[in-house]
Design a protein around this nucleic acid. Structure first.
Lengths: 346, 346
DNA sequence: ACTCTTGGAGCAAACGATTGTATGACGGAG
DNA sequence: CTCCGTCATACAATCGTTTGCTCCAAGAGT
């Protein structure tokens, strides 16, 4: 037999040091790449060998306590069940892990009190940095975060008062691609069913819609713009019903996100209308399964994984260099054309 | 002004003790519900007041180091991007948080080496317990886990050698509901497109299918059983093509999960067949959007959130009482009947 | 009145690492 | 031969808690 069954208590640095016949401090320096230069090569080899032999794993708690760095980042997300967030979280996790960081995710359910409590919990856990996917345009929590001095970045959404850097999809460009696509197909009476204006994505996509319509020489009809109360299928359906109720003709709709677009599908079905024959629909975000709906949903894909990756990148930079020059990052979207958009028949 | 801008360094227990005019150890006991009884009520009040006044938050690192408990649980998941897992993770997180525990999730991508590395990382982080959603029937990693003595539970999948408790959906019952539903509709030539037999859900659903078919007096035709290489849409499509290639007639299919069922949709479309007119299809898990496919997918819903909740429950019990009597937990599924199943026309 | 018990609080040693400072040896220069 | 600089290592403090032990005083029992 080569090794005994796993020891109940993992070996400590002191034990490694003893096994290598050196003082713990020497062992520490030998093991830490940062201080390797302070010990002779010979003893470094000894220590490393002993560490490997004993299966030494530094106790991250002790290290964290001493260094007051936990190598942990926290993330607040409205609800990980929303398919937009898992790919972002994966990107973040993958990037953080490369630097030995761990990610802790908590769900706020868009509840102010819960948000605050979870933030406190993160602080109590002494996370080294914070990633917020929960920002609203008015976001008082952010004051507490910045006041606490905790490095922080926003993802996917930003705030009106932007003192904190954010990594986002370029929604202006994305909506532009959607509008251009519809215009090229021949649509002129294009509607917008936006998402709540309380979050930045809702308002940005709304403004971009107006702006791009005008750039294409189309005067956006206020009657053809409805705002869904939230980024949800049922809220989207309600907004679509309102849109139809207004009685103004339209042949295409740019939606605030994919769930709203699905709500649109439901309402078209209710009214016996066909997509894309009667109405073309474009979603946003390109969450999974858009290929499987019928018709397959044309949508603006945002690089979710990479957004996560880059936001982690940014957080790492800010954590190591506290006066790193801050800037928002807007990643390029790409329109995925599928079956829900076609030339207008009217 | 009531308070100054947040202090750079949060107050320590010693500072609270000093403010209350007592020794740190007394302050500790006063603050800890567990040891509150060891100090007089009067001083307890003093200490609590001082703690509140200073905004004291115990340093979880120091506590963890001293107590060698981190109040953290780790979770290994194949890929959080799979919509099955986020609701489970939420259930876990919500339950853990009630006891002051934090959940750390890591994605293994079904990669053995990555799995092992992430397990090591969890150990290095000194998590108090581990939740594995990554089990395969043969699962060598589990030996290391049990050898390490780390409390551990499985979720959604279990292993052949079941020394570790698991919380699962009751797949036998779920498949039974699916088969019974189809039989009641009048189907007799029912096929099964299962998932990989390398994981317990694949093999359990397969065996249950055979068993329930026989219980309904139907002799399952081996030609009508195909195993998809993985629980993915494209692998499911391949399996469906194989099923058709065998040339044996069937009118309904029980699928290993919803993605495989979607692969079935694709193949039916390829062949110009209609669901449910030509073939009825039942999925499994009832992941989101089943309502939005066309036809809406009939599927066996497993209580994902509650599975997570209960697995966390179990882990907490095991952690606090190391010889808690172990048992697997099978939660009741429920068949969600939608448009993809109908009476056979042949 | 004396001892015994008991409750409350302080002391100090952990937990396991990192790191500033002190110490020792050794080699070269004057 | 002495002195000094340098390099490698050892020493010890520290991070912020928890907790076994000791100690003291006050109240109860006889």
């Amino acid at each position: 037999m080569t090794t005994r069954s796993a020891p109940a208590r993992p070996p400590t640095l002191a034990e490694v040091a003893q096994a290598a016949g050196v003082h713990p401090s020497t062992a520490s320096r030998a093991l830490n790449a940062h201080t390797r230069g302070k010990v002779s090569d010979a003893t470094a080899v000894q220590v490393v060998a002993a560490a490997r032999r004993l299966g030494y794993q530094p106790n991250s708690l002790a290290r964290a306590l001493r260094m007051s760095r936990t190598f942990t980042a926290g993330m607040l997300v409205p609800d990980i069940t929303n398919p937009l967030f898992p790919p972002i979280a994966r990107g973040i996790e993958d990037r953080l892990r490369r630097n030995g960081f761990t990610l802790v995710i908590a769900n706020t359910d868009n509840d102010d009190d819960k948000e605050r409590a979870l933030f406190e919990a993160m602080v109590a856990r002494r996370v080294d940095g914070l990633i917020l996917a929960t920002a609203r345009r008015e976001y008082p929590l952010l004051n507490e975060v910045t006041a606490s001095g905790l490095p922080c970045v926003l993802v996917n959404r930003t705030t009106d008062d932007t003192a904190v850097p954010a990594v986002l999809g370029d929604d202006h460009a994305g909506v532009g691609q959607a509008v251009r696509h519809l215009v090229k197909l021949g649509h002129t009476r294009i509607a917008h069913v936006g998402g709540t204006q309380a979050v930045s994505t809702g308002v940005t996509r709304y403004n971009s819609f107006l702006s791009w319509m005008r750039q294409h020489g189309l005067d956006p009809d206020p009657q053809l713009v409805v705002i869904a109360e939230w980024f949800q299928e049922e809220r989207g359906a309600e907004a679509f019903r309102e849109l139809f109720a207004r009685g103004v003709d339209f042949t295409a709709v740019v939606c605030g996100n994919d769930l709203i677009a699905l709500g649109g599908y439901d309402v078209l079905r209710e009214r016996g209308l066909s997509c894309p024959d009667d109405v073309s629909i474009v979603g946003y975000n390109d969450t999974p399964f858009n290929d499987n709906f019928s018709p397959a949903l044309t949508s603006v894909r945002i690089p979710q994984y990479h957004i996560g990756y880059r936001v982690a990148d940014l957080l790492l930079k800010i954590m190591e260099d506290s006066d790193y020059q801050l800037a928002d990052l807007h990643l390029k979207p790409q329109l995925m054309v599928r079956g829900s958009t076609a030339q207008p028949r009217r």
